[in-house]
Design a protein around this nucleic acid. Structure first.
Length: 596
RNA sequence: GGUCUUGUAGCUCAAUUGGAUAGAGCAACUGCCUUCUAAGCAGUAGGUUUCAGGUUCGAGUCCUGACAGGAUCACCA
């Protein structure tokens, strides 16, 4: 039983004896005491006016008195208005520290026997990844790791959009303007090469449109009649008919793109357990349409198209199959949904997809529930906000896209410049230095994108480069490097800090106690981050932890401390902090250096 | 136009899910390296939480309305 639960139990006991009332667990909530008041936990009396039948202040005093008298843990209390602030004995905090310190699995909750599939990344194979994909990938990876820490078995899935008209556009442009260019002939990364021809298609297509408009066609007609577009559509038909030449080109270009993606994913530090390809899944879902019709969840209109009526659920009617029997987006999504379940038997299936598809997933999930899928309630859309530039939304056609590869390299370069300016690479080999720059640059980037609540859209200003000071990845990494330095020195001078040395301690400095308090919150935060699908909560926590440690570091000396027990305790406290930072940062996909 | 969503310090973001005097970082200013890494620490300044009502012991948070941004509403993906 943890500290809060013990206190809650004592409070329940108190309510029973003082007010003859059985408090329900869900009624209770201890909150951390605000800094300006004495105490560690605060119990709010206001909600219990009717139960106590006295003024909140008086009831608070009565309860506080009771707790001090009857609980080993509570040593003092004070009441401000209706807020009962409780002080916890230093011995209790030392016990807590002892528990945390001796737990080798601190930060890993017990297995819960549940499986969760997390789909993220899901790129199109016609262009390279950009800033928006970075947020998606970092989020998807991090939430997967956080769910593992919460005891789930996690399957990371990537649904690759490798077919469709947009892929054909790149292919058509390549046929016309490619001159046999390959990644090796041009030195271009495969995904960038495909992207190049996607842009060329758009440019040439626009040219053709204006030529047609000049001959008297309307803009709309021109868009339909432009030869390049007709070619792309024809190519899509051929692809679906399994035309040998088209499929061969498609395979070649996709292979290039995957080689490019592999490199990008490696740099990002993300990985996947399972790949799905739309070229395999795009015909799925038609059997579900039949099923829906027979269950009378779907209905046919006169022209033969199939619909679902979601007006009872507050939505509209929605098309699920075209009149000519061909699929729409949601048809294959229904099919893929079942496919994922059949493959994995998941309890939860999470889609890390931008909030522009909120409506789509709302519809999809409601349909699957209407069809009576047993996993229906486990479907969740982890909807994240767009990353905006100061100029507004990123638009590939206007060239305002921030490329993922470029940005990552820039961050690493900036880390190098910054580190050299500070003169902090003495004693590093070339390889070690390169590794450090990458750790710092990627840490800064990941932390920057993960510290914001995923649901909210966020701003990225390429002019003002990402910071390395304050609420940043490198600040937390720096705190870890500092501690590592202390641990090295402790080892060197032979400080023994196993968990028996400091058992005799009685008094805690404020900075020591505050550090234990925040270390104690770690698993609570992991749990919360998992429940709310929000790495941001963990990021915020790690910043607070690092800040708290730095205060401890500045206020108290370790190696000038003459009392050997206290010294050992402080080293152990530092070691636990370092371990917590390392574990926590790993859940964000961020590495921490031992020196920087 | 319908639906959804956001609006907090000059800027970027928090606020324990309805709790105390709304907090951090950046930028600005003031201190602190002869002490374990100054990518740090301590401090000053910065707010009518877009606006107007309402609900109650108590509202940045919930409800209604206005204003302003964003997304979405295709037999597109």
């Amino acid at each position: 039983m943890n500290l809060e639960q013990q206190i809650i139990l004592a409070i329940q006991q108190g309510f029973k004896e003082l007010f003859d009332h059985e408090l329900v667990i869900s009624d209770l909530g201890l909150q951390p005491t605000r800094k300006e008041f004495e105490g560690s936990f605060t119990f709010v009396m206001f909600p219990y006016l009717k139960v106590t039948k006295m003024a909140p202040e008086a009831a608070g005093n009565k309860l506080g008195e009771y707790l001090v008298a009857n609980s080993e843990i509570i040593t003092a209390y004070n009441v401000v208005k209706g807020f009962l602030n409780l002080s916890v004995s230093e011995k209790s905090w030392l016990n807590i520290f002892h528990q945390l310190y001796s737990n080798p699995n601190h930060g890993q909750l017990p297995q819960n026997g549940q499986k969760v599939m997390v789909e993220y990344s899901s790129p199109n194979t016609n262009k390279p990844l950009h800033l928006g994909h970075l947020r998606n990938n970092f989020l998807g990876y991090s939430i997967s790791e956080i769910l593992k820490a919460n005891g789930y078995e996690v399957i990371k899935a990537n649904l690759v959009n490798d077919r469709g008209i947009h892929i054909c556009k790149s292919m058509v442009a390549y046929q016309h303007f490619g001159n046999g260019e390959t990644p090796s002939s041009s030195g271009l990364k495969g995904d960038h090469l495909a992207g190049k021809y996607y842009v060329i298609f758009d440019k040439e297509y626009k040219k053709q449109i204006s030529e047609l408009v000049a001959t008297g066609q309307t803009e709309e007609e021109a868009k339909k009649n432009a030869p390049l577009m007709l070619e792309a559509q024809e190519m899509l038909r051929k692809w679906e008919a399994n035309d040998e030449a088209v499929v061969s080109l498609w395979k070649t270009m996709n292979t290039w793109v995957y080689q490019g993606f592999d490199a990008t994913y490696k740099k990002m530090g993300v990985d996947f357990d399972k790949f799905y390809y739309e070229s395999d899944t795009y015909l799925l879902g038609k059997d579900i349409v039949d099923e829906g019709l027979s269950k009378e969840v779907f209905f046919k209109k006169d022209n033969g198209s199939t619909w679902v009526d979601l007006s009872e659920e507050g939505l509209d009617e929605k098309l699920v199959l075209r009149g000519d029997g061909t699929s729409v987006y949601i048809t294959q999504d229904m099919g893929t949904c079942d496919l994922k379940f059949n493959d994995s038997g998941f309890n939860k299936s999470i889609y890390v997809v931008g909030n522009e598809q909120d409506y789509h997933f709302d519809v999809l999930f409601k349909i699957m529930r209407k069809l009576g899928r047993p996993y229906g309630d486990g479907l969740y859309h982890l909807s994240y906000g767009m990353v905006d530039l100061p100029t507004g939304k990123m638009k590939s056609r206007e060239g305002t896209v921030v490329d993922a590869d470029d940005l990552m390299q820039e961050m690493i370069d900036t880390a190098e410049t910054h580190t050299k300016e500070l003169g902090k690479i003495e004693g590093f080999s070339t390889e070690e230095a390169a590794e450090l720059y990458e750790t710092l640059g990627m840490g800064a980037l990941k932390y920057f994108l993960l510290k914001v609540d995923p649901k909210k859209r966020m701003l990225f200003n390429p002019q003002e480069s990402i910071e390395f000071q304050g609420n940043t990845g490198p600040f937390i990494q720096y705190s870890h490097a500092r501690i590592s330095s202390i641990l090295r020195k402790a080892k060197q001078i032979g400080v023994v800090y196993n968990d028996t040395v400091f058992e005799g301690l009685e008094n805690l400095e404020d900075a020591e106690r505050d550090l234990i308090v925040i270390l104690h919150d770690f698993e609570k935060k992991i749990k919360q981050a998992g429940e709310e699908f929000s790495p941001a909560l963990l990021a915020q926590y790690l910043f607070d932890l690092a800040k708290e440690y730095n205060r401890f570091y500045a206020e108290l000396s370790i190696f000038n401390e003459s009392n050997a027990n206290i010294q050992a305790f402080r080293v152990a406290l530092s070691a636990l902090t370092a371990k917590t930072i390392q574990t926590g940062m790993k859940l964000l996909g961020i590495n921490v250096p031992d020196r920087m």
